[in-house]
Design a protein around this nucleic acid. Structure first.
Length: 466
RNA sequence: GCGCCCUUCGUCUAGUGGUCUAGGACGUCGCCCUUUCACGGCGAAAACACGGGUUCGAGUCCCGUAGGGCGUACCA
């Protein structure tokens, strides 16, 4: 039996949950669930100036919406500062770290000079092996190896190596005694028992330095998996410019979370030719070995298509629930039980032509409004004296027909034949009268959904207005 | 500047030395279905960044070049 898998997602609470972060969280979650392990959440709030409780809340909400439930309590990194400092002092004692008394000004001056001279900007502290220490503020630095290479075996990137001389002695504790990110991550991951570190490949270089801390403490290394970043549709880094950098934007646009998980999972990960799959399937199939190394671009067209497929695959009652939840979230009037019931009944017709939740609202508009209907401009253009006359003659027939899809269809088609009208000439004015829109599900469906009384009343309204 | 990573159709990707005249999906175009829109069906155009090797044989391995990304903080 192997050690149980423990993964984690460790965002900084400095804003919303970024789409890239969401994908990282998803991969961690998928991997944990696929292996019967734990998925932990740690808020990296040590940058007090930039961290806010609102942002933490936004991250929680984003993850919840996506359905990425985490195990145990979320850990606050800031709350663990003492523990981080403790480890730094252990390292001081075991000789893998040292006190450096160089001031920030000195170091900055060194770097400026090195840059100007075109030489290495890696700072070499003169205090590394000093024995005569002054009584002054100091920083704790890692005593990193200066020869050989540092090798990280990455589950995605493969073997990655750095020459030791290209890395400096990173700072563990600042001169005010607070821990740096580099130290905190390593200590927290170790203490939390994290076995697999799955994160963006912007951290790949950090792995080299973090591994050194691990080695210094004699702690085992986790499996690293540095996954590629997500780019915007133009290939540049995903940002506000691309319209929707946060997961809540996607929620607001009306993409079902299931579709979002499906789409996000397909960015830099694949399972053969499978494009459309459920979350359960993703869990079953997910593995680190199928993650590719190249960055992926975000493509709304494909997301839309996938989203439409998920909507069509969903259970009608569930979909109605999802839709009304969405309407509530968007501060729209929420339909009552009766309308909800008719929405569910009509759902097979509505969802045929929807990609996102708002499409369902637009398609089901005729069920959500009540008489007298307000027509939009396109719908109104279908109504004139000629079409009114036609509608009037048709209505006479409709009063006596059995109110079923087949009979309605037969009657209306026969009527169109007798009047020598193309079917569209009959249907579009009817659509205007019944739905107030120029697009809707099939008119026969609409008629059935609305029922005889309501349908005829809506048409009569239009006739009366003439 | 230095370090590291990446590079198959417009986009997401399959591909782990021969079965690749490179497969799928989205998108695009055409046809069909059709009361609009959509869905669905059929079909088409569309890619191994470039240059050297290694090998009987390279999309697959190696080295360069170009392009892109990330990092290079007493930020995370």
């Amino acid at each position: 039996m192997n050690t149980p898998v423990v993964t984690r997602f460790a965002p900084s609470p400095t804003g919303f949950l970024h789409i890239g972060g969401a994908r990282t969280a998803l991969f961690n979650w998928l991997f944990a669930r696929a292996n019967g392990g734990k998925f932990l959440l740690r808020i990296e709030d040590t940058d007090r100036a930039r961290s806010t409780p609102e942002a933490t809340e936004a991250i929680f909400n984003g993850l919840k919406w996506l359905g990425l439930d985490w195990d145990d309590e979320a850990v606050s990194q800031a709350a663990r500062m003492d523990r981080h400092a403790e480890v730094a002092h252990q390292m001081l004692e075991n000789g893998s770290a040292y006190k450096c008394f160089a001031t920030q000004e000195e170091i900055a001056a060194f770097r400026d000079a090195a840059k100007a001279a075109g030489t290495s900007t890696v700072y070499r502290s003169p205090w590394r092996d000093a024995t005569d220490l002054p009584d002054a503020p100091y920083v704790v630095r890692l005593k990193a190896p200066r020869e050989g290479e540092i090798v990280v075996e990455d589950a995605v990137q493969g073997r990655v190596a750095w020459k030791s001389e290209t890395l400096d002695d990173l700072i563990l504790l600042r001169s005010d005694g607070t821990p740096t990110y580099m130290l905190a991550v390593v200590v927290d991951d170790h203490d939390m028992g994290v076995t697999h570190v799955i994160r963006g490949d912007d951290h790949l270089t950090n792995a080299a330095r973090q591994v050194l801390i691990l080695d210094a403490m004699g702690w085992p290394r986790p499996v690293y998996a540095h996954i590629p970043l997500i780019h915007g549709e133009d290939g540049a880094k995903f940002s506000k410019r691309h319209g929707a950098p946060g997961v809540e934007d996607y929620r607001d646009m009306g993409y079902p979370a299931e579709a979002m998980r499906n789409y996000l999972a397909r960015l830099s990960w694949s399972h053969g030719d499978d494009e459309f799959f459920t979350t359960a399937q993703a869990i079953e199939w997910f593995g680190l070995d199928a993650i590719s190394k190249g960055a992926a671009r975000f493509d709304f067209k494909k997301l839309d298509n996938l989203s439409g497929q998920h909507i069509r695959a969903m259970d009608d009652a569930d979909l109605t629930q999802l839709l009304t939840d969405y309407m509530a979230l968007q501060q729209m009037p929420v339909p009552g039980p009766e309308i909800r019931e008719s929405l569910t009944q009509a759902m097979p017709a509505l969802k045929e032509r929807a990609k996102k939740l708002p499409d369902l609202i637009e398609m089901g508009h005729y069920l959500l409004t009540s008489r007298p209907l307000e027509m939009d401009a396109k719908a109104a253009s279908q109504i004139d004296d000629v079409s009114r006359g036609m509608l009037e003659r048709l209505t006479e027939r409709l009063r006596n027909v059995t109110w079923t899809h087949t009979d309605l269809e037969a009657t209306i088609k026969a009527f169109a034949g007798e009047e020598e009208l193309k079917l569209g000439k009959v249907m579009q004015p009817m659509r205007s009268a019944l739905t107030g829109r120029s697009t809707s599900p099939s008119i026969f469906d609409v008629l059935v959904h609305l029922g005889r009384e309501e349908s005829l009343a809506r048409i009569d309204d239009v006739l009366a207005a003439g």
